[in-house]
Amino acid sequence: MRSLFLERIVHIFLLICALAAIIVTIGIVVSLIGEAFRFFARVSIFDFLFGLTWAPHTLSTGEAKGFGIIPLFIGTALITLIAMIVAVPCGTLVAIYLSEYASSSTRQILKPLLETLAGIPTLVYGFFAATTLAPFLKNFAEFFHISLSSESALNAGLVMGIMILPYMSSLAEDALHHLPFNLREGSMGLGATSSETILRVLLPAAFPNLMAAFLLSLSRAIGETMIVVMAAGLSANLTFNPLSAVTTVTVQIVNLLTGDQEFDNAKTLAAFGLGFVLFILTLFLNILALYGIKRYKRIYG
């Protein structure tokens, strides 16, 4: 009897914990949407989504121009793209090495090392970008007579790529390592070499989980702020040139909300507008990914 009663208590307690998490999430979304709509009451959503100029700080309160987010999204996309170009191929190759080629003793040293790297605060990466990589890139560019500002999308993207690399490779390594051993045997038994097995059997078989690793890394890149503040700057230039300074959505959110702010003018409310669009975008990416992975798994088991 007593143990049954205890079970019920535990059950209810755990239910409350679960509900609390859900309620907080709903609360966040609702407040985000609420503030975003207050913003869209002042600035047309069309001007916001398709405007080509981002200059909220030059405006006096209540003015509706200068809230075009296209430069921010292009800045985000540019930096994220550079980061993924670094992190995805390198991360996958590191994962392949660790999972398929490294001896178990090498693996036992390298895997925890990678996981440690993945845990370093991004601020530290930001320092690295600003104080080490930026001057290096600048000198390097000067050697070829290209002028490069010390803040650039390239700089931020490269460091962000380095930051994501251990994360990506750790996830990809898990994806490969957990494939059934009998797939390897099947392929080797037909006279395939290790590299043929990896390319033709293991990578396709791990594809859904590699895709998940890719998307988790992508979300991290999109959400990353510190590195961009320190390495890419605040200027909202509308450009695809990786050598120029750009800024991103998250950086501008921080920028809009820094200092004592009243939440009643378009300038601060714009942060919620940005947050809202970012939220929709990442939600869409995640749903797309889940759908794709599910579909692939349904087909190939």
Binding site: N182, A205, Y300
Partner: peptide, 9 residues
């Protein structure tokens, strides 16, 4: 092999 191991293709 003991357990059928077709490739996921």
């Amino acid at each position: 092999f003991q357990k059928p191991n077709p490739f996921p293709r």
